[in-house]
Computed example of a mutant assay.
Amino acid sequence: MVRYRRNRFSGGTYFFTVTLRDRRSDLLVRHVDLLRMSWRSARARIPHDVLAAVVMPDHLHAVLRMHDGADDYSRLWQDIKKGFSRRLGCVGPSPWQSRFWEHTIRNEADLRAHVDYVHFNPVKHGYAASVAEWPFSSFHQYVRDGVLPMDWGAESATVAIPIAGEA
Rank of each mutant, 00 (worst) to 15 (best):
S10M: 03
L148W: 07
V50K: 08
H103W: 02
L148K: 04
E108I: 02
V2F: 14
R86H: 15
D58T: 04
R6G: 06
L148F: 02
S98D: 12
W134Y: 12
F139H: 04
A160Q: 12
A52H: 09
A160T: 09
H103Q: 00
D71I: 03
L20M: 10
R8N: 03
N121I: 12
Q97D: 10
D68K: 00
D68V: 05
D110A: 02
N7F: 09
S98H: 13
L51V: 15
S94N: 03
A160Y: 15
R6T: 02
V18H: 01
R24L: 09
F15T: 02
S38F: 06
V50N: 10
R36Q: 14
P135I: 07
P57C: 02
R144V: 03
S85K: 02
S130Y: 15
H67W: 12
Y127K: 08
R144E: 14
H48A: 14
T13Y: 00
P162I: 11
M150D: 10
D79F: 10
D72C: 02
R112F: 11
H48S: 13
D116F: 08
E133H: 13
R65V: 09
D68C: 02
D49A: 15
W101Q: 07
L27N: 04
A129W: 13
Q78T: 01
F9I: 00
G146A: 08
Y117F: 04
W39K: 11
R23K: 09
I163Y: 01
R5Q: 05
R86K: 15
R24M: 06
A128N: 06
Q141G: 15
G92R: 05
A167M: 07
Y142K: 15
S94Y: 01
L28K: 02
Y14D: 03
V54F: 08
L64W: 07
N7Y: 07
K81D: 04
S137M: 10
L88S: 12
A109V: 00
T13A: 13
